[in-house]
Design a protein around this nucleic acid. Sequence first.
RNA 1: GGGCAAUUAGCUCAGUUGGUUAGAGCGUCUCGUUUACACCGAGAAGGUCGUAGGUUCGAAUCCUACAUUGCCCACCA
Length: 877
Amino acid sequence: MKNQQELPKTYEAKGVEATIYERWESAGTFKPKPAADAKQKPFVIALPPPNATGTLHLGHATMLAIQDIMVRYHRLKGDATLWIPGTDHAAIATQNVVEKQLWKEEKKTRHDVGRDELLRRIDAFVKESQGTIRAQFRRMGASLDWSHERFTLDETLNRCVRMVFKMLYDDKLIYRGNRIVNWCTRCQTTLADDEVEYKEEKVPFYNFTFGPFSIGTVRPETKLGDKYVVVHPDDKRYTKYHGFKGMIPWINGEVEMNVITDEAADPEMGSGAMTITPQHSFVDFEIAGRHKLEIKENLIGMDGKLTPAAGEFAGLEVREARKKFVEMLDEKKLIEKIDEDYIHNVSVCYRCGTPVEPLISKQWFVDVNKKIARLHNKSLREQALEVVGNGDIKILPENFSKIYKHWMNNLHDWCISRQIWYGHRIPVWYKLANGKAGGSEAEEIYVGIEPPEGNGWEQDPDTLDTWFSSSMWTFSTLLASSVKTATLQDWMKKSPDFKTFHPTSVLETGYDILFFWVARMILMTTYAVDQIPFRTVYLHGLVRDKLGRKMSKSLGNGIDPVEMIEEYGADAVRLSLVIGTTPGNDIRLYEEKIATYRNFVNKLWNISRYILMSTTPTEVAPTPTTLADEWILYRFDELKREVEDHIKAYRFSAAGEALYDFTWNKLADWYVEFSKIEKNKDAILRHLLKQLLVLWHPFTPFVTEHIWSLLDKKEQLITSPWPDTPTQEQLDADYDKRHQAIVSIEEIQLVTRMVRDHKQKLGAGIEYTIVTQGWKRFADQNQLLSRLATIHYSDVEPDNGVVVNALGDISIYAVGDVTIDTTKLEQERQETKTQIERLEALLGNKEFTQKAPKALVAKEEERLKTAKERLEKLSQH
RNA sequence: GGGCAAUUAGCUCAGUUGGUUAGAGCGUCUCGUUUACACCGAGAAGGUCGUAGGUUCGAAUCCUACAUUGCCCACCA
């Protein structure tokens, strides 16, 4: 060993990661630098802001790993690179957490403490969570520009939200109306369509008599005031009732019944006739709208109990009311039958699982179908479809653009008002004309960025859907906070960051929020900014356990990334989330997998340790002098090309695998071993190591930076230049030049393997000789072979030798008093024969030789030749 | 009900536009104290690529049907 340097035998991630991160951050390396190439577009990613409630989970770890690869790659390439961190206030989720805590600790509800006090408590909680998140994201090694951190409730972002709200309002894309909405009786708020989930449940299905019709339902209690029966216009059974109007017996005596026709009634379903309850069913609401029917008051209230409009049922819980209602119907002999085993999809709140009540409520909506001038006479929906349809925005994997389009095609108006306290307050003020609460017809409305002047204005108590503000994330985070303008256009003009960095390059996130978030960003950004928010959408899968199950607390199968980082190091965790995965497909993670990559990181460490300890720094250029040198330098050039191609094509797994294979199977297993025989490889070894560290750096930033610091202290690795990558043409030319060296070295590897195999079977003490014909062996090739496989080289067949294997024009002899098991040899002979037959058949096929690519035909011919030679050798003994 | 994906070694997964004998990691078996590494090294075994057809000189890859699994959307009055 040339160096006295003492390096630990295993890489201890725990001891170095924090220091390294601190060094990157304090040197300002995460901040964007002007591009080396002025023509090159900056590379920008807005980090999907994690909820301000949580702690780091594997979903976060995945997005950080993938995005950091892209960001570090572009930084090394010399691009102006910006990765914007931040957190999302996650309105309902956050308020829920604090409300739960309040109840648990003090047995108080939000109404007990009041709006201001609740918000104060939420703020305190959020501040703490943000601190946790920041610390944990740093532990993953994420090279986020923390000086650019944003929060969806920052004043700057809040102002942006108010501005966009006003723009939409002025364009008449935001309206307020009495419409049917999803209502969570627990969260006490509306939910957007995609915030509702469905759960299968076994419930009784009732069939009752409604005049001449048989009506089925799982929710009889809503049928209290029904008076319309809907049948399909073409349903012959009911043609005679079309337009019928008359009195029929119902729960409390006679009621008026009207028969109307609508295509929504499915003749195949049940009796083909249904009654409608527009207050509590989306479909019924639409039917009522088409027929301009009067819509009565809600029967179910926001508290989940029946309202005074339900008369004697008022105040009852839904389930109690149902029971009573059915009993009363039964007494009147109006129940036909009850199916107790009916499987029904119950809609529930995605946050708390409580059944959702559809009911009528006065809410704010975004109109997605109205065509407006700003969008060149298109609607929000059409615009959002177009930018994906025409390729301005590319979605990866591609099949998700189909899903996106389908969703967009079926998009309904977006209910954006929420009856919770935490979030962006709706920038609308009301003044009652008569100065008294009550009649809404008499009120004046003011919509603005700032509160209106004068007295008597009261702000809308509601807040905005959390996705409303996150839909602006790519541009709201780039607006200058110091600037106050009246319009968004002006603001953008006066925001240098916005002008430099928008649109962003890539939006990387899990496919589960494609609709919640990605689609809405496209919707809102194309409208408000008249730019796409990002050019490429990369969707990763969900992290699951080894059996493909979701990780959950109740199953106890969760993996805490922070614990894994503690034990295996951040680099290993990152690799385990990237290698062996493909975009859009779920990722199965388990501890052994992380351990595998920890082992790899240690391998990289030990290769470096060996090079550091056995070579000295040198200024000599890495010039190949032996076959092995030529081989490794060619394969390394090839690796650079592969890695770059893969990263550019977002195939991060393939890039990582190529690096892994080169590092372990080529550099460590062969070249480092060659270097022990051939010596004097300091320049090449150090050159390979340095460049390899750069290539690995996006994947495993900590260990590479650490090794780098032991190697070269001038500049940090994170801001070093990416090595020049040869073009495919250069590689091809190089291959032609180095062809013999490459073939020879790879031949050595094969022969070595064969001899080792036989040595194991025949035992020690056997001598091996190889006899070659055809081209002359190179001196260093012979030397390498004899050292690696303890083998002699000869031009002539040894007297008492037995052929144990053959490769092309090489024969391998075991020499001496050898009794060998010929089964293996016979097996090889058979295999070679089969191969020859196959190849002869293939090459005898004119269609193949004519239609297949010439290179392939030539290759097959070469293989046939080799196989024949081999068979000849094998048959000699 | 509509749509999308998946099905490859015992397990977890790769497999770019159809083209060598289908790859990797883990696990299994055999051997190994060569001073970079036992978080290691050398080797081996293990797959008719879900099933059945089709297109093609050639299919894990393209087409059709079916089966199984998962997800998304719609939602049954």
